[in-house]
């Protein structure tokens, strides 16, 4: 029994090696472009004095939620982060989360729509999602390195994979939950599939899709922190440094920063999702 080992690991490694040998030049090029993009985004966000961006984010949070409480919390929370000297890592974490979420939505929502309208794709996509979600997040970090090199792009790659499942799942769920009589009515008046999708199914599924995107953002945030291990900077990087140098105080400060960012993002997304809920 011990003599024979099914070569699962070996074959995965061989497959990855094959892809790295033949396609890494593409992914590396992509990595370069994306990395430049991230740098530009970060430098734009840090171009002005931190207080300007803090006020902007506060105003945006208030504008989107119309909640004084959240506005005050955002202002104080971000000022605290600035005060702790964590402003630059926070900005780069935000940039990573934004970009990863954007990719996750661009890929995830169409996949969710596809899964909702075609049974075959549903049956293919759902087991893959189960696999993606139960696989420990750290594992995604390993193959990301040979393709994208150490750094933020590898972090974004593994973050997108880790955070995409809720966007797919809840988009699919939201569309499937549209009452069948409404779909029947749309059919009865002679709607095409696209008209049905854009005029009925997506609008009604929006609150569910927004809930999925909210989860995606939260997962992205947690993954971006973990991805510090492969060279993503940001708040996760601060935590990672604190672990290596055994500085519990510094570690907690960075941890608090992450919590503040998470609360702000979560509350904003919840309100945005709730507001677009149709009057039922």
């Amino acid at each position: 029994m011990a003599d024979f080992r099914i070569p699962i690991g070996d074959s995965i490694e061989a497959t990855i090696d094959f892809f790295v040998d033949n396609f890494a030049f593409i992914t590396k090029a992509f990595a370069e472009v994306t990395e430049n993009g991230i740098e530009i985004l970060v430098s734009v966000m840090t171009f002005s004095h931190p207080i300007v961006l803090i006020l902007l984010i506060t105003a945006l949070a208030y504008y989107l939620t119309k909640s004084y409480g959240l506005g005050v919390f955002t202002l104080l929370g971000l000022l605290l982060i600035w005060n702790m000297g964590l402003w630059d890592p926070t900005v780069s974490t935000l940039a990573l989360v934004l970009i990863s979420t954007l990719f996750a939505i661009i890929i995830g929502v169409p996949l969710g729509i596809l899964a909702s309208i075609s049974t075959i794709s549903y049956r293919i996509i759902m087991p893959i999602l189960d696999f993606m979600q139960t696989m420990p997040a750290f594992v995604y970090l390993i193959p990301a390195i040979p393709f994208f090199g150490l750094g933020p792009v590898a972090a974004i790659f593994s973050t997108v994979i880790f955070s995409m499942p809720p966007a797919i799942r809840l988009t699919c769920l939201g569309i499937k939950q549209v009452p069948s009589e409404l779909v029947e009515a749309a059919d009865a008046f002679g709607s095409s599939k696209a008209q049905k999708l854009f005029k009925l199914q997506l609008p009604i599924a929006t609150p569910t899709i927004m809930a999925g995107i909210n989860q995606t953002i939260m997962l992205a945030l947690s993954m971006v922190v973990i991805a510090a291990m492969i060279g993503a900077k940001g708040l996760g990087g601060e935590v990672w440094k604190a672990i290596q140098r055994l500085q519990p105080g510094r570690g907690f400060e960075a941890g608090i920063g992450i919590v503040i960012v998470a609360i702000i993002l979560d509350r904003i997304m919840q309100r945005v999702g709730g507001k677009s809920k149709p009057a039922v």
């Binding site: 029947e184 005029k199 009057a279 039922v280």
Partner: peptide, 13 residues
């Protein structure tokens, strides 16, 4: 064909 449904099937949004 125009159709009218038992539970109205109006679009809530």
């Amino acid at each position: 064909f125009g159709m009218v449904f038992q539970n109205f099937a109006l679009f809530p949004h």
